[in-house]
């Protein structure tokens, strides 16, 4: 979209680091299920998934280098979904 986009070439090294981080977190989210955290199991899984998601969005999908406005849009969507999940848990945690 923006003209100067092609100037932001991400180094291969960065990609590899992100890839390793993503793989690490994938294993972590599997490993974490063996510990019984009670209701916080979901919180743990969601937290790891969100971090992964943010990494993909920022680096692989170039959100970091794009117009700030798109960043704001994506962030609002995150906040919205987080609030919806939080409110759902007002039921599950206190039932």
């Amino acid at each position: 979209m923006e003209k100067e986009q092609h100037t932001h070439i991400v180094k291969y090294k960065t990609y590899v680091i992100v890839l390793i981080a993503l793989l690490f977190m994938t294993f972590a989210s599997v490993a974490i299920t063996s510990i019984n955290l009670g209701p916080y199991t979901v919180a743990g899984a969601l937290l790891l998934a969100s971090i992964k998601c943010v990494l993909v969005l920022l680096i692989f999908m170039h959100l970091k280098f794009d117009n700030k406005f798109y960043g704001i849009m994506v962030a609002s969507v995150f906040i919205l979904l987080a609030s919806v999940i939080f409110i759902t848990f007002l039921d599950y945690l206190y039932r």
């Binding site: 919205l80 609030s83 919806v84 409110i87 007002l90 039921d91 599950y92 945690l93 206190y94 039932r95």
Partner: peptide
């Protein structure tokens, strides 16, 4: 409007907090 869906579920047995 995203945060009020539970008003359809008042008699479903949700928690008091909800």
């Amino acid at each position: 409007g995203y945060f009020v869906w539970g008003h359809h579920m008042f008699t479903s047995g949700m928690s008091g907090t909800a």
